[in-house]
Computed example of a mutant assay.
Amino acid sequence: MLLASVFGVVMGLVLGLTGAGGGILAVPALVLGLGWSMTQAAPVALFAVGSAAAVGAIDGLHHGLVRYRAALLIALLGAVFSPLGIYFAHQLPEKILMLLFSLLMVMVAVRMLRRERQDAGPSDHGHANWGQKNCMLDQQTGRFSWTAKCTATLAALGAVTGVVSGLLGVGGGFLIVPAFKQLTDVQMRGIVATSLMVISLISLIGVIGAFHAGVFINATGAVFIFASIVGMLIGRKIASHMPARVLQLGFASVCLVVAGCMLFRA
Rank of each mutant, 00 (worst) to 15 (best):
G131M: 12
S165K: 04
L168C: 08
A159I: 07
T151G: 00
K133Q: 14
F144A: 03
V164L: 15
C150H: 03
Q140I: 10
C135K: 03
A128S: 15
Q139A: 13
M136A: 13
A152N: 08
A128Y: 10
K149N: 11
A155R: 06
G162F: 09
K149H: 09
F144H: 01
W146N: 04
G131W: 09
G162D: 07
T161E: 01
Q139W: 03
A155Q: 02
W146V: 03
Q140P: 02
C135F: 04
N129C: 02
T141G: 00
W130S: 13
V164A: 12
L137Y: 03
G131T: 10
G169R: 04
V163I: 15
K149E: 13
V163Q: 00
K133P: 04
S123Y: 06
R143H: 14
G162P: 07
G158W: 08
C150D: 01
Q140H: 11
A156M: 14
V163F: 15
T147H: 13
G126I: 04
A159F: 08
D138R: 12
Q140A: 14
D124K: 06
V160W: 09
T147A: 10
S145A: 12
N134W: 13
S165T: 11
H127A: 13
G169T: 05
T153K: 03
A155N: 03
K149R: 15
W130D: 12
T141L: 07
G172K: 02
V163C: 03
V170S: 00
G142A: 09
G169E: 07
G166E: 08
A152P: 00
K133W: 03
G162I: 08
G162S: 11
V170T: 06
V163E: 01
G171C: 03
S165A: 11
G131I: 05
H127T: 12
P122L: 15
L137F: 08
T141W: 00
Q140F: 07
T153E: 05
R143F: 11
G131Q: 10
M136Q: 13
H125E: 11
K149D: 08
W130E: 14
C150T: 04
H127K: 11
A152W: 12
T153V: 06
Q139M: 09
Q140N: 11
G166R: 08
L167D: 07
C150E: 04
H127S: 14
G126P: 05
S145C: 12
G158I: 09
W146M: 03
H127C: 10
H127F: 13
K133F: 06
G169M: 09
L154Y: 02
R143Y: 11
T147V: 09
G173K: 01
L154V: 12
D124G: 15
S165P: 00
C135Q: 01
L168E: 05
D124C: 02
L167M: 12
Q139C: 05
V170R: 02
L154F: 10
G169Q: 04
G142K: 13
A152G: 07
V160G: 02
L157T: 10
D138A: 10
L137R: 14
T151R: 06
W130Q: 14
L168M: 15
